[in-house]
Amino acid sequence: MSDERDLEPDCELVGIVAVADNDVIGKDGDMPWHIPADLQHFKKTTIDHPVIMGRVTYEGILEALGEPLPGRTTIVLTSRDLETPENAVVATDLEAALEAAERAARERHDTDRVFVAGGATVYEQFLSALDRLVVTEVHDDPDGDTRFPTWGRESFREVWRDERDGFAFVEYARRERMD
């Protein structure tokens, strides 16, 4: 795989994640909480957009829903050979994933926004190329085996926040890059 810093997306690249105060995002391949409002927020935010994710995240969605995310094109970043339905595509590296997502954004969804939806390794690989982060900040410290990578908050500025009971929806935009 190439270095993520070489990625130059032609679209807005947005990470979307639910993360606890202790940076936990998963436990045993699942989220260690159940927040229906977060699931609704994820759906509302990503519908009609391509979503890049790793194989484990994709398989977790298949197990939960019986199909890939409806109303979105799923790009599965994996080195494994997977059979996918029409609204899912396998990509073996970052460039192929981004290319497939950008093509789906133009041809299927009429948008210029692509989402990155995990897991931890996928977030880490795309982190330096993200223009925005849409974060559900879960005000808890659950046990977990998967953590969101260190993302350098100083590189982003908070542009929107909606506090709820026990969590907050927050959007961060990347600060202007210093050349």
Score class of each variant (00 low, 15 high):
A64F: 10
E83I: 15
D162M: 01
T45R: 09
R103C: 01
G66I: 06
D81I: 05
G60W: 05
R147Y: 12
V122E: 00
R174K: 14
I35P: 02
E171F: 08
D145W: 07
K27D: 11
D143P: 06
D162A: 07
L98V: 06
L127S: 08
L13T: 05
F169N: 04
D28G: 09
G60E: 06
F126V: 02
G66A: 11
D145N: 13
D3H: 14
A97P: 01
A96K: 12
M1Q: 06
S155H: 13
V51K: 01
V19N: 04
L62R: 10
D93C: 07
D162K: 08
D112R: 11
E12L: 10
R174A: 07
D28P: 00
A20Y: 08
L13W: 10
W33A: 04
V116R: 07
D30Y: 05
E176D: 15
R177G: 13
D10T: 11
E12Y: 07
F115S: 00
A91Y: 12
T111H: 09
H109N: 00
D10W: 12
A105L: 03
V76C: 02
I25Q: 04
S2M: 14
V14F: 01
V134G: 00
F156I: 14
G60P: 07
G26Q: 04
E107N: 09
A88V: 07
A105E: 05
R80E: 14
V17D: 11
R147I: 11
I25E: 03
R177S: 12
K44W: 05
L39C: 07
A120S: 15
D112G: 09
S128D: 15
E8P: 00
K27V: 00
G54N: 11
M178H: 09
N87K: 12
V51F: 02
L98A: 01
P70Q: 08
V76F: 05
P50N: 03
E12R: 15
S155N: 14
N22L: 12
V24K: 03
E102D: 02
